[in-house]
Structures are given as structure tokens and as C-alpha cells.
Amino acid sequence: MRVKTVPIIVALVAAALAARPAAAQMDISGQWAPVMDEDRDERVSGPELGEFMGMPINDAARARAELWDSSIQSLAEWQCRPHGVDYITRGPSQPFITPEIDPASRNLIAYHFEWLRSVDRPIYMDGRPHPGPNEAHNWAGFSTGQWIGDVLRIHTTHLKEDYIRRNGLPRSDRAEVVEYLIRNEDVITWTTITYDPVYLEEPLIRTSEFQWRPNQQVPPYPCTVVTEVNREPGFVPHYFPGENPYAREAADVYNLPIEATRGGAETMYPEFKQRIQELIPGR
């Protein structure tokens, strides 16, 4: 009996392995919609100005954000920029994901992530190397993917500078991003980890969820630059260091000491609650 069982098990395992796709362990293609049970206010309307809580930013990022005037978005050079790859999962946009298949081998060459109001983002699955350090950077960067079991790991380089929050917090073009996509039935849990040697003290880790929406259609979104505000050519909106009138907005809205709103790695950890208590006058 034992003699017969082993070959059968081996045959079953072999058959199961043969049935598995060579490259993709879990299909992630299709239409997906953001699940915004958490952080709806940040993801749709956006965070308050000066609200950097829980963001592991350094002094340079804080200084940059305090110079930032939201009116800069009206400049011609800024109008049609898409959200960056490590921010767009925290925005309100819907993605659709399509596989690119090699017709000869039927291997997966790439996934293409496209979002509302964004650019095509190929995730190369064919083992191609990342470009050299002096090649151009773009909004989507250069991404390669690999399967770790049923988890898709994506590594992205060659990003243009962008923002990690829509209140002026910068992310530099020296940053690299690692993502993990985990599909459980009709939900993808999407983890984004940003490593930025210029503006972050520690990696910024965020997770978001997306629901499968087969009846969704993401429309095209062509963008044309227009004159939004009549200004002198070359005008760049910004504030003088230390004189941003909105720097206290979040502290006032939440009735917090301003130090609690300024971000930094320590604000990510539970121990910071004690620090806030110490900062409140009279405690």
C-alpha cells in the first residue's frame, strides 16, 4: 500500500506544480477601487496645513514644507503633474492593472498600473535590470516585481521628486520605494515603503486597501496647462522661513501643542503619546 501511495502523491504534487503559472502566483489584474474606511479626510480633501504627525520627516523636509505655498500648484510647470507612486495609493484614485504577456512564451513581461489622473506605470516581471544612475527619472519611476509566494514585491527607482502628503511634505528623487501587494480574494492590501535619504529619518510605511470592482471603468484624463493666475513670468509662490501663516493650522484645529504636529520619526511610535502629554501646559 505504502509503495503505491508515494508515487501517487508525487504525481499529484507534480500535476499541481505544472498547473501553476510560471511567473504569476496570484492574478492582480483588473479594476480596483480604494477602500477609504481609514483616513478618508486625508485621502480626499487632504490633510490640514502644517500637519505632519506620524511622518518620519527630518528637519530639511520640515523646512521645505514650511516654505511651501499651495499656490505653487497653479504654476504651468506644476499643473499636470500626477501623484507619485508612493502617494497615489493614499489618494482617492482608482487603479486598473493589466498584464502584458509575451505571445511566444506566454510569460508575464509586465503589469501595467494605471490610475485615474496618472501615467502608465510598468512593473517589469521579466528580470530586466534597473537603469544606470545617470538615466532620466520619471513620475512612475522604474519598477521591477518578483513573487514571494503569493505576495508581489515591487522595487522602484528613478523617481522624480514628489510629495508624501498634500501639504508640502517633499520626497526626493533619490528615494527608492518597495511595495508588497497581498491579494485576499477581492481585496488587495497594498503596503508602500519609502526610503528617502534626503527627507526621511526612517522609512515611511503605509498600507491601503483596494476592492475588486469589475464594473468600474477608469476614464482617460488628458491634462492641458492653462494660465490659472496672471503673474509675472518666473514668479514662484512660497513663504519666508519661519513666517508661514498656516504653520499652526493643524495645532489649532486639534488643540495640540505645535510640537506635536511637526512630525519626525518619534511621532510614529506609541511612546509619543506620553511626550504630547508633557507638552500640554498645566500637565
Partner: peptide
């Protein structure tokens, strides 16, 4: 497109 590429 979207302020990238084109003139290098």
C-alpha cells in the same frame, strides 16, 4: 505628457 519627457 504631464510635464515629463519631451524636450530633454
Amino acid at each position: 505628457f504631464r510635464t515629463e519627457g519631451g524636450t530633454m
